[in-house]
Design a protein around this nucleic acid. Structure first.
Lengths: 139, 139
DNA sequence: AGCAATGTTGAGAACCATTGTCAAACTGCG
DNA sequence: CGCAGTTTGACAATGGTTCTCAACATTGCT
């Protein structure tokens, strides 16, 4: 580490350099609004003319996810799928075939999970809820 | 495909033969009440003296899951984890620290997901809902 | 601009959970 | 017992994801 932090800027700045590759990933993410696997995103970038290594796509997506700028969840096969997200808590209705995604909010569900957890004395909650199905177009 | 089905038997009988291996897996499952990976279950069987191939453990767990006799879900790394379960559809409230699990039913949630999906024309549904928190003991 | 320090990339190897292969062993039934 | 259909297991093969590390880009400094 040796983070001398010469300027003493308090909060350690998360240096994220604006590279061609990261811009390409961001651009790709902006180009669709459903969930895609890292490999699909990688292909998409290639098709857009850019060339970015697969490992870099993974790295970038992970760091974006950690920064809360993209949602990452897992499909039924356990594969990670990603997309840029709005910043409110929500869930997804995802098409198993084409990936079409609907963002849904579920105040009822939030309330229900809180009630259940309280009932059992659990605190510091989080939850995951995703719905998979086949969209009208894919049937 | 090529499912010639020579005898043209209507409902294909799901013959599940009671083998030593399947008994061993069932015994292992009975030996714990939290979620374990297939490999952990395989190790557990070995430690119990039995010897069952890893592939067989996977096969057996999958078929048990399909038959609704065990729950299979994925941890944050995308690995499949399993445990025996009651035979009704339910979700889990899992302690983030010690792993203590409470099975919860949520008819309200089921209804909600169905409604949401119908509203958007999605069919052939499935969903995942898991709640994570800190249990009373771990606070 | 030139340079040094350090974060970033990419090609491919490495990992590792999971599934496929197929001959040998086992089960149920006659 | 003997056959037909299942099941098993050792191992290869997959496939997504991460690691490695030398080459490269970016930033800050002079």
């Amino acid at each position: 580490m040796t983070s001398t932090d010469p300027h003493g800027g308090g909060t350690q700045t998360q240096q994220r350099r604006p590279t061609r590759q990261r811009r390409a990933v961001a651009a790709a993410l902006a180009g669709f609004d459903d969930f895609r696997s890292a490999q699909e995103i990688h292909d998409l970038i290639s098709r857009q003319g850019d060339s970015v290594g697969l490992a870099t796509v993974y790295r970038t997506l992970s760091s974006l996810a950690e920064a809360g700028e993209v949602d990452m969840l897992r499909n039924e096969d356990g594969e990670a799928i990603w997309r840029s997200c709005s910043d409110t808590h929500h869930h997804h209705l995802v098409c198993r075939t084409c990936g079409a995604t609907v963002e849904v909010e579920g105040p009822a569900v939030e309330r229900w999970t809180n009630a259940i957890a309280a009932e059992h004395g659990y605190a510091d909650l989080s939850h995951t809820l995703e719905i998979f199905g086949t969209c009208p177009t894919c049937r």
